[in-house]
Amino acid sequence: MDIRFIVPGNVRHGSGGNKYNAALAEQLAALGAEVETVTVDGDWPVGSPADRQRFADALDGGTTVIADGLVASGAPEEVAAAVGGGAKVWILSHMPLADHPLLEGNALAAVTGVVCPSNHAAAELQAKHGPLNVVVARPGAEPADMAVGSEPPRIVAVAALLPNKQQTLLVEALSQLGDLSWSAALIGSPDADPAYAAKVRAAVEHYGLERRITLTGELSGQDLAEQWHAADLSLLISKSEAFGMVVVESLAHGVPVIVREGTGAVEALGSSGAGRTVAVEGPSDLANALRAWLTDPATRESWRRAAVYARNDLPGWEHTAATVLAALARPPR
């Protein structure tokens, strides 16, 4: 099968969506598909006429297309024209568009089908737009070395510095734990939203936590592996999250996770017992959960054992790609 995979060019930090796209394309090729990845620049999700023309050009001639929802959901007329011309166009919706429901609804109504990374994301999309031809293809796990941890315990939050990721709330929560021993690392790009990144840095300085909280910037390769190696707990407390690939990444290292209740990260964590969900209304909710973990060795050991157990049962990206490939091969409804 020949697949044209269209991805946005205006997300330059290491987002979960970018990582999913790259891993899926690689594994589709490993399963025998001919995959052509096309990057479309533009001010997505609502591009200019020139941006949408570039997207239309990318669609032209593709008989089977996977288009990232950040691009395709903002260009329903171009999607409809491609499908009308005989192409099978699937939108890969990493997360519903919060501010453009009409555009997104029109695009979803025009496509052959939709790929979502979680049941949570699929349910959220269908709650907004009604029944859709959806296939859920959960992110896979990359094999990873087991974390060793640190003394005092090391807390990591791996996410770009963005308001949705709530790093300022995390810093405020950690400021309430000054009587306990811990260190923390906020690992993510400051370039996605420089103004918010400045607020995060200012919060660390305001609470006098420069010696306890490290802002590493975006890391990859051995630098990121070293941070995971030293970690004892990871956090994903985003206000909204379709799945939370970093949860799977954490479990792959045998590191338990605290996630925010009501988000797709709960689905990523599952029922393994390798952490907990927290209803985060404010910093004290998170601080209380962290205090309970830091002060109870039995809880830390229980979560750690559960994370190590879960590590051995994580499906790889080949399962993700096989699910998508089977959906693409089905006749259009």
Rank of each mutant, 00 (worst) to 15 (best):
D57Q: 12
I187S: 01
N21V: 11
G149S: 10
A80C: 09
A225D: 15
H129E: 10
G178I: 09
N312M: 12
P256Y: 02
L174H: 01
V248S: 09
S93N: 15
W317S: 10
I187K: 01
P101E: 14
G16F: 03
K239P: 02
A268F: 03
H253A: 07
N133K: 15
A109V: 13
I258D: 01
V89D: 06
S118T: 11
K239T: 14
E34I: 14
Y20F: 14
G84P: 06
A25G: 08
P49L: 08
E78Y: 08
V111T: 15
G62E: 09
N106I: 07
W228K: 05
H129C: 10
E241G: 01
T39W: 05
A279F: 03
S183Q: 12
L215K: 10
A81C: 10
G9D: 11
L314K: 12
A184K: 03
W44H: 11
L219V: 11
T63N: 13
K165Q: 11
N119G: 15
D41K: 08
D313R: 15
Q53H: 11
E34M: 09
E34P: 04
D57R: 10
Q27D: 09
D296G: 13
L215T: 14
A307T: 08
E301R: 11
L132G: 08
P139D: 06
V65S: 06
N21Q: 13
I187N: 01
A184F: 01
L161S: 03
H229Y: 10
V46W: 04
P45H: 06
G188K: 04
S73Y: 00
K128L: 14
I187Y: 01
